[in-house]
Amino acid sequence: MSDTLRKTPLYDLHVELGAKMVPFAGYEMPVQFPAGVMKEHLQTRAAAGLFDVSHMGQVIVRSAQGYDEAALALETLVPVDLAGLPEGRQRYGFFTNDQGGILDDLMLANRGDHLFVVVNAACKAADIAHMQNGLPGCTVEEISDRALLALQGPQAEEVLAGILPGVRDMRFMDVAVFESSFGALWVSRSGYTGEDGFEISVETARAEELARALLAHDAVEPIGLGARDSLRLEAGLCLYGHDIDETTTPIEAALGWAIQKVRRRGGTREGGFPGAAVILDQLESGAPRQRVGLRPEGRAPMREGTELFETQGAGTAVGRVTSGAFGPTIGAPMSMGYVPAALASPGTGLHGDVRGKHMPVTVAKLPFTPANFKR
């Protein structure tokens, strides 16, 4: 393992628990524990799983004039309604470029007098520079002394309420700060699995202690990157750099739902973000291609990079798979990818080029597994 890779505060615990460590986004991360990806995936769906997501970026954005000014400033970089976001709530959003492409996707929370932003690990440095350069009236502070854990699954509330009883009152996408025996915990009721759950920011020095306390519960097992990927794919959630990137617009990526009415044409704060003309045109008229779910026949997944064809054994590729894996919950392979809008209806038959053979695949509705959030 390269000496240049960074370690999260839970690295020693992962090794102690028998994790297989791999390089990921500049960090040494657990891809799986001894139970294996399949069991870890099903554990999270049935009970609760604990994920180390400390590689993600945690950022605070402030304005001397308060939350409203900071929110309006950040709206110049994202097509999301932040000024109208109530205190104690968060939203999914994305940075866009002048062509309407996605620079990164992120979570944005109203924490009263500031915004708390969580960005992807691989984009962390670029995102922080983007905010520092694009928000001259604000302070942009990377939080470097806190770890980030995700507790996911139908028993996540029961487990975390044993430490923080107040989480029982939280709804999906609520955020709160709780005092605890592990110090101040910044909690959001959200995650990346399609299950109910929480993301918990904890002081670095207390992270292992908190993780051990959660893992001591009979319902909780440690979960690695492998199951994290199959869980999010079953849930129809995008992975940055694969399903979305600088060449995909939010509308192509089927993420138009994340652009609130006030930021659309005719809204009180219409546009004003990079690529607004492209994105708002596509919102009204549609995009030429669409991210879709794909269900291959048989048991073999169609992996990222598989080219898609309208006619078996003939013609030029019309699309491409961006993510693919076996879905333990659905008991079948699953993929996501991009196809022309005319071929994006569920039930449309296509063919994927798997090692030179054109194999049948059907466009499917997303998500593959229904979400289990607490509304």
Rank of each mutant, 00 (worst) to 15 (best):
L85K: 10
V59A: 03
A161Y: 08
Q65M: 07
E28T: 08
V80T: 15
L77M: 13
M170Q: 13
M302Y: 00
T306H: 00
C123I: 01
E270K: 04
H14S: 11
V59N: 03
R264K: 14
H358T: 00
R263C: 03
P34L: 10
R265Q: 13
L225G: 14
Q260K: 12
G66F: 11
R111V: 07
H14E: 02
R232N: 05
Q282M: 05
V59G: 03
F33G: 01
V363D: 00
G298W: 06
G256A: 14
I102M: 15
I143T: 11
G305W: 02
V318H: 05
P296I: 06
A125P: 00
G324V: 01
G271A: 15
D127L: 02
E40P: 08
R295M: 12
A341F: 03
Q155L: 14
A325Q: 06
P79S: 07
G57P: 06
D105A: 11
G26C: 07
D113Y: 02
G84S: 11
R264P: 03
Y240D: 04
R355P: 01
L239K: 13
A235Y: 07
M21T: 02
G327S: 13
C123R: 15
L85Q: 08
F51D: 03
G331A: 04
E246L: 04
R263L: 03
D196V: 09
L231D: 10
D196H: 04
T329R: 06
N372A: 15
Q282D: 04
N97H: 06
T322Q: 05
A287Q: 02
R269M: 13
E40I: 07
I102T: 15
L294D: 03
V53S: 07
E69M: 05
E209W: 02
